[in-house]
């Protein structure tokens, strides 16, 4: 034993390599615990290389079994793969709390409980927490937001897919009157809605509502109804229901919330899985949600 440092109360903690500050050169060294703190000495000669009190020394926390780093205040570094020895040193010096996360992570039957808890919590968040967040977001959204969203959406659609209606004025008036009767029954009242006639082009026979109460009805749908105005009014009532329940706003927030949740776990689920989940969420959410909750306002007309 090298007499220089190894006094009676010193003990060898671990073997490893030591780097001077900012240097890639390494020295085969060992870490020694003394009464005053920690010392690194060269294995071959016992020459001391670095030392410091336990308080002044920073020891990296444990992750799996990757090498541990012991940083000295002179910026030199001792590195060892002997994780167990470092753990024992830390627990002797009373730094127990630092290993808490690693304790959870160790391969142990307890992990089964963690897996179950993760699935349960993920389900609960999706089922209960996300809808609450969506409600909060809808509540704090100022009314000007859906207004601006709707104006720009209609403008974009007018420019890309829709063209002016070719229905004759009489037919338009007929539908508008029927529409006015049911819109008056809604909580927003007739003033809360405007009905627009368009030729659908690529979107074909269709009717849709924008969050500010702008409704669009395509000529193709009127033709498909083939004179059955009751059916068209029914469809419009359904669209009013969407607006009353703020479905489009909810859908947007819901999609954003789901994407946000997935993105937070991005690194843990992997990029291809993430793409699949985000895309999938966008795909199946909208139609099912819209169908599952039939807007109640349509009922008086059935």
């Amino acid at each position: 034993m090298k007499a220089s440092i190894l006094a009676f109360d010193s003990r060898i903690i671990a073997e490893g390599e030591w780097h001077p500050a900012n240097s890639s050169l390494s020295v085969v060294a060992r870490l020694i615990e003394t009464s005053t703190g920690l010392v690194v000495e060269r294995v071959s000669t016992g020459e001391p290389l670095a030392s410091g009190s336990q308080r002044a020394i920073e020891i990296s926390s444990r992750v799996g079994s990757i090498p541990r780093r012991v940083h000295f205040s002179d910026a030199s570094l001792f590195e060892t793969t002997d994780n167990e020895a470092i753990d024992r040193l830390l627990s002797r010096s009373g730094r127990r709390g630092t290993g808490f996360v690693h304790g959870l992570e160790r391969f142990h039957p307890r992990l089964i409980a963690l897996v179950v808890a993760t699935f349960l919590l993920a389900g609960l968040v999706y089922r209960y927490a996300l809808p609450v967040l969506v409600e909060v977001a809808v509540a704090v959204t100022p009314p000007v937001v859906p207004k601006i969203m709707s104006v720009s959406t209609l403008e974009t659609m007018d420019r890309t897919m829709l063209s002016p209606s070719r229905l004759d004025a009489a037919k338009q008036r007929e539908i508008s009157e029927g529409f006015a009767r049911i819109a008056a029954l809604s909580t927003r009242g007739l003033a809360g809605y405007s009905l627009n006639f368009r030729e659908g082009g690529a979107i074909g026979p269709n009717a849709f509502a924008l969050p500010d109460g702008t409704l669009v009805l395509t000529d193709e749908l009127v033709k498909l109804a083939d004179g059955d105005d009751e059916m068209i009014i029914g469809v419009l009532a359904h669209e009013i229901g969407h607006v009353e329940l703020e479905h489009s706003l909810r859908q947007i927030y819901r999609a954003a919330g789901t994407a946000g949740l997935i993105m937070m776990l991005a690194g843990d689920v992997g990029s291809s899985m993430e793409d699949l989940l985000v895309q999938g969420a966008g795909f199946w959410r909208c139609p099912i949600r819209a169908r599952r909750k039939p807007p109640p306002i349509a009922i008086p007309w059935n």
Binding site: G64, E105, L111, D268
Partner: peptide, 9 residues
């Protein structure tokens, strides 16, 4: 596995 599941949880 342990690191991963604890991260997610």
């Amino acid at each position: 596995f342990g690191i991963w599941i604890v991260n997610i949880l």
